[in-house]
């Protein structure tokens, strides 16, 4: 709020139709902060901590981009968005990028005119049931009451799954994860379904996590990733390659602790990433050390994963699909060349 409320309101009438779609990068640099859309609160991915600082896996992507573009990982305005508001916020320019566990789908990419720059978490929709029900497979859920967190693709997947298996169910749509948890624990629904990562996070917060099981079926593919507006390819490239740099950094063993050493002694590709060789940064419209700052901001992909959602955290997700391709996972950063 550099301009005051009323002066802003007055001058806005005189604002030239300036910001066309293709200059987000210069807008961000001029503004000095990155407006990043996140969820209103999902522990592990994006949630304000007790001091009001945003923290989490999605938040880390925003911070890495801010570090790359603005030299300062803290120069981020986090804009909490709901399932309803996230796309408008991005389309109308209120935010520069959206890092809000958003599933990459055809409609969103093509019809809604967004550009998914990559995948930072491969997820899938799962089910959680109380152990006492004695259910061991999702195919036994005929007639169950299912709590769904609305606003994601979960409703569609659920309807598809139950239709495919000829089962009846009663959906109970719920706005926030906290309320879904309350409903589920009180027995108002038999099953809670959302992304498997969300289930793990929710279960971790229970008093007795052992009383609940996550069923083996994963009924959908949910590639979650950051997205930007369609048509601004320069900005899309910046976000895409920042994410790729984080992933590649893990592959090549660049961590936030050894980054300086790697910059001088690493392999040629590592040096290209870290800007000691070649001038990849200038091609993006940034300086040479953009990726070095992005990685130094919170560490490489593996470090971020371990810190926010990994097995040592209360959420306790294993890498699974999100391991590097060298470890049998799906993470595969294109070459920096």
């Amino acid at each position: 709020m550099k301009k005051t409320v009323f002066l802003g309101a007055l001058t806005v009438a005189g604002l030239a139709a300036g910001a066309a779609s293709a200059q987000t990068l210069s807008d961000v640099q001029e503004r000095g902060t990155l407006n990043c859309g996140v969820t209103t609160g999902l522990v592990g991915f994006a949630a304000p901590d007790a001091n009001g600082e945003w923290d989490g896996f999605d938040v880390a992507v925003c911070r890495a981009v801010a570090a790359a573009v603005l030299q300062d990982p803290t120069a981020v305005e986090f804009v909490p968005t709901t399932g309803k508001t996230r796309f408008t916020a991005l389309a109308s320019g209120e935010i520069d990028m959206l890092a809000r566990n958003t599933t990459w789908t055809f409609t969103r990419d093509v019809d809604l005119k967004f550009e998914f720059v990559g995948v930072n978490y491969y997820d899938g929709q799962g089910f959680m049931v109380p152990k006492a029900l004695g259910v061991s497979s999702a195919t036994e859920l005929a007639g169950a009451t299912v709590c769904i967190q609305t606003g994601t693709t979960t409703e569609l997947n659920l309807a598809d799954y139950f239709r495919r298996n000829n089962m009846e169910y009663t959906p109970v749509p719920i706005e926030t994860n906290a309320e879904a948890q309350q409903q589920y624990l009180a027995g108002a629904c038999d099953v809670y379904t959302t992304d498997a990562s969300g289930l793990a996070a929710t279960r971790a917060a229970f008093e007795n996590p052992g009383d609940h099981v996550v069923l083996p079926e994963i009924i959908s593919k949910e590639p979650l990733g950051p997205l930007v507006r369609h048509g601004d390819n320069e900005w899309g490239d910046v976000v895409r390659w920042t994410l790729n740099a984080l992933i590649a950094a893990e592959e090549y063993g660049i961590t936030s602790t050894n980054i300086e050493e790697m910059a001088t002694n690493g392999s040629p590709e590592v040096k290209r990433i870290l800007g000691t060789e070649d001038e990849l940064g200038s091609k993006l419209g940034l300086d040479a050390e953009w990726a070095r700052r992005a990685i130094a901001a919170g560490g490489n992909y593996g470090e971020l994963f371990a810190r926010h959602i990994g097995e040592s955290t209360p959420i306790g997700l294993s890498r699974g699909l999100n391991a590097q391709w060298t470890d049998g996972g799906l993470l595969y950063a294109p070459p920096f060349r």
């Binding site: 209103t40 522990v43 949630a47 968005t81 709901t82 309803k84 926030t176 906290a178 624990l185």
Partner: peptide, 26 residues
């Protein structure tokens, strides 16, 4: 609070009830 602003009710339904420390203090 319904449009993701953290007023009193929004604070309660969002950050406070969602935190692992106070989950269930309705």
């Amino acid at each position: 609070s319904i449009i993701s602003m953290f007023d009193l009710v929004g604070m309660i339904r969002g950050p406070i009830l969602a935190s692992t420390d106070w989950n269930g203090v309705y």
